[in-house]
């Protein structure tokens, strides 16, 4: 049989003709996938628009200079913009302070766990330890908050820090650090594990010890992923709400004493939104200014991380 006769069959159609139905399907898939990609981006833009729109209203009452330079936060007591103080530094400092404490806990332990899992643990141990760690990352943060308030604080009070207050930034931040460990460990473990075996063998063949291979060859090779995990951890700490709202209290004060209560930006937003501030009131307006500040902070952090990861990305 020749090609001609085959073409003649099949209801006289040209076999090489494009299939219209197929083209439609292809195009449809493309459109759906594109829509998925745009939904998150457009939503983000929408949020930013609302956030900054409302914040702009607030800054017409309270100047941005006051917002950045005042050293007290008394928005809850203010009925007019003049009789309150709106120093964001109070809330921002609480956020930064708690993040620092949490990072002191989470970054070294998370990285250590990642190195152990990837380089030292046997394959069998790694197989169940890593999922276990990742499950830990799924514990709701409210549980951590209760843990801080009902266990860690009383424990510290009864043992080494009798002067600690019921609501304090220290327990909340320590527990937040513990919460972040799985994130840091899991993401950096992925990066460390992805370093090709050939690189390790090259180091072993030069007479490197296991420790030298792990710390001087493998970790530097995975540094961009490790930094990404750190930033992810820091971002979670900056944005963490429930632990802070539950265990750190609601006292907006500027202090460096971790045994006292402090109010982070997120905890403040929780307090206002769960209270009875009517829409349009001054206190209601403040949360958009605080939210916008939080947004700018995390955006900055992510931008730095993005730059860093690209700058130090390793090609193996």
């Amino acid at each position: 049989m020749t090609v001609e006769t085959r073409q003649g069959q099949g209801s006289g159609q040209n076999l090489w003709r494009e299939s219209r139905a197929r083209n439609v399907r292809e195009r449809l898939v493309r459109v759906v996938l594109r829509a998925c990609a745009y939904v998150s981006i457009l939503t983000t833009f929408g949020i930013v628009f609302v956030l900054f729109g409302e914040a702009f209203t607030f800054f017409q009452d309270v100047s941005i200079v006051r917002f950045l330079t005042e050293t007290q936060w008394t928005a809850g007591f203010a009925t007019t913009p003049e009789d309150g103080e709106f120093g964001i530094i109070v809330l921002a400092w609480a956020t930064i302070f708690s993040t620092i404490i949490a990072c002191v806990v989470a970054l070294p332990i998370g990285l250590g766990a990642a190195i152990y899992l990837s380089e030292y643990a046997s394959a069998g141990l790694r197989r169940w330890l890593k999922p276990a760690l990742e499950i830990l990352a799924g514990v709701p943060t409210i549980v951590y908050g209760f843990f801080a308030l009902t266990f860690v604080t009383p424990f510290l009070q009864g043992t080494i820090l009798p002067g600690i207050q019921i609501y304090n930034i220290l327990s909340a931040s320590l527990v937040m650090g513990v919460m972040i460990i799985p994130t840091v460990a899991s993401v950096s473990e992925d990066a460390i594990y992805a370093v090709p075996r050939g690189l390790r063998e090259g180091a072993y063949a030069l007479g490197a010890t296991k420790r030298e291979v792990a710390t001087k060859v493998v970790v530097p090779a995975a540094i961009s992923g490790i930094v990404a995990s750190f930033v992810l951890g820091i971002s979670r700490a900056v944005g963490e709400t429930m632990i802070m709202a539950v265990a750190a209290g609601a006292l907006a004060q500027l202090t460096v004493n971790p045994l006292e209560s402090m109010q982070t930006m997120t905890a403040y937003i929780v307090q206002v939104t769960s209270g009875e501030s009517p829409r349009g009131s001054l206190e209601y307006e403040t949360i958009f200014a605080v939210g916008a500040t939080l947004f700018v902070m995390t955006l900055l952090l992510n931008t730095i991380a993005y730059w860093f990861v690209r700058r130090f990305r390793e090609v193996y």
Partner: peptide, 20 residues
């Protein structure tokens, strides 16, 4: 084994320079 590898070096099939 660490000391032995210092005396008996090895070059591998796939080039594996360090990220340095």
């Amino acid at each position: 084994p660490v000391r032995i590898r210092r005396r008996i070096g090895m070059v591998f099939q796939k080039p594996n320079p360090f990220s340095k």
